[in-house]
Design a binder for these strands. Structure first.
Length: 117
DNA sequence: GTTATGACTTCAC
DNA sequence: CGTGAAGCCATAA
């Protein structure tokens, strides 16, 4: 057994560890439900890591089995950005296919579709 | 090392 | 209900 490491004063996993934690959480989101970036971050043990969640999702392979489209922002809507190259529109389409209803402001009832855990 | 940017959030106005 | 500022963390230049 290697000598004990000098110091690990962080209870918050970083790096690959964080990526794995985030993926594990997102994978648990049931079909027809959604979770916010902040919610996913908190569940992964990364309070305040909402932006990190976004970066992780952007790095995912296009053929990933992770339901990335069920991760939305705190306004109850899809986060639109030019850097997504249309992936944002795809996200909305996938959500609608799973039963999430958008209003004319491109938002849905977060209280109703938010993953309860 | 610093600065700028981004699939974010929250609070003040 | 919209806007702006500050906080947050990783990445790119």
């Amino acid at each position: 057994m290697p000598p004990k490491r000098k110091l690990i004063h962080t209870a918050r996993p970083r790096g690959d560890n964080a990526v794995a934690a985030i993926c594990a959480v997102v994978r648990r989101i049931p079909e027809g439900w959604v979770a916010t970036y902040g919610q996913v971050a908190a569940m992964a043990g990364l309070p305040g890591g909402a932006r990190l969640v976004g970066h992780v999702l952007q790095d995912l392979s296009p053929a990933t089995d992770i339901p990335w489209h069920r991760v939305v922002n705190a306004n109850g809507g899809v986060s639109y950005s030019p850097s997504r190259h249309g992936g944002d529109a795809l996200q909305r389409r996938l959500l609608e296919k799973e039963g999430v209803e958008f209003d004319d402001k491109d938002r849905f009832n977060l209280e109703r579709f938010r993953w309860p855990e």
